[in-house]
């Protein structure tokens, strides 16, 4: 019988301890790290330098912060960042509100629920360019279907894409039309995950439907709201294809975003300036996600 055996002295084993390898080897990162590092991280870091140069792709001259100064001085360039933030705010705000409402509708007992869920979701799968072209036609100021209907009553519809004050918001509306599906799906997942107990407890306390929503559903779907905001805001900041397919930043520069400016400057051969646009966009996203 050993009682509280006193600590035996550790033997030394000579120098030759084999190092046991982890069952989770670090080299598993390698293939992904290589592709990601070379094709994503390296250009991203390179952009920090090239944004400070006048650049022809073959040689670059360091010009300090000139590109950025130009970016915020030229009226047609400065419109980009402003529009970008506006666009992101409008689309993500609408997606939050509409996504929440649709999710409430689609988690309630409603006739044709399966059909409704599919129909809300599937614009996501259609090519953005295709959607852009279709809505450009539908929003045609005189012949477009959207204005045809009010025209029947003698009301003149707005010039959705040709009115400089409206163009950006018209594109944003189409963005919401296309992107409200994922927001709804995220909200549905959030709402379905709320334990039924809460509603039952609330019912025992005599809560009305509205109180149920206000004190149970709304607070408990906060994580879903956070997700929708993050995804759609960042998506909004980056938007290029829809804008390009519908207005190309026009009329004039009325609906230019940073992403469309980057493309325009690239096409025009101002590579340094284009890259500076990219850096502005990183910074914007960086600031927003660290807030």
């Amino acid at each position: 019988m050993t009682v509280l055996s006193e600590a035996g002295s550790a033997l030394s084993h000579g120098g030759s301890r084999a190092i046991r390898r982890s069952p989770y080897p670090g080299w598993f990162f390698l293939p992904a790290a290589l592709i990601y590092g070379v094709l994503f991280l390296a250009p991203t870091f390179a952009s920090l330098y090239f944004s400070l140069t006048r650049w022809t792709l073959f040689n670059s001259t360091f010009i300090g912060l000139d590109n950025f100064a130009q970016f915020f001085r030229e009226p047609f360039l400065v419109q980009g960042p402003v529009n970008t933030v506006l666009y992101a705010a409008v689309t993500s705000g609408l997606k939050v509100v509409l996504g929440m409402l649709l999710a409430l509708l689609l988690t309630s007992a409603i006739m044709g629920r399966g059909y409704l869920r599919s129909v809300v979701f599937f614009p996501v799968l259609v090519s953005t360019v295709g959607v852009g072209i279709t809505f450009t036609v539908l929003m045609h100021p005189t012949r477009g279907m959207i204005n045809d209907t009010p025209a029947l009553f003698g009301i003149k519809g707005p010039g959705w894409l040709v009115d400089p004050r409206l163009a950006l918001f018209s594109v944003a509306l189409v963005d919401v039309w296309k992107g409200v599906g994922p927001a709804t799906v995220i909200y549905i997942a959030g709402i379905v995950a709320i334990p039924k107990d809460y509603y039952e407890a609330a019912r025992i306390d005599g809560a009305t439907k509205w109180q149920n929503f206000l004190y149970v559903t709304l607070p408990l779907s906060r994580p879903a709201t956070a997700t929708v905001i993050i995804l759609s805001f960042i998506g909004g900041l980056r938007t290029f294809d829809l804008i390009w397919a519908m207005t190309r930043g026009g009329p004039g520069f009325a609906s230019d975003t940073i992403a469309s400016v980057i493309y325009k400057q690239y096409r025009a051969g101002f590579y340094g300036l284009s890259t500076a646009g990219n850096v502005v966009l990183f910074v914007l996203i960086g600031i927003w996600s660290c807030r």
């Binding site: 989770y24 250009p43 991203t44 952009s47 090239f50 650049w55 690239y266 990183f282 996203i285 996600s289």
Partner: peptide, 30 residues
Amino acid sequence: RRKTRWNGLIEFLILAGLMIPPAVVPTIWL
């Protein structure tokens, strides 16, 4: 599976890839 002090950095890089738009011209150059 493996918790190391690198995990934080790696996760940051992954999230960055999800959020940050690619730097197009430098990518073309590359």
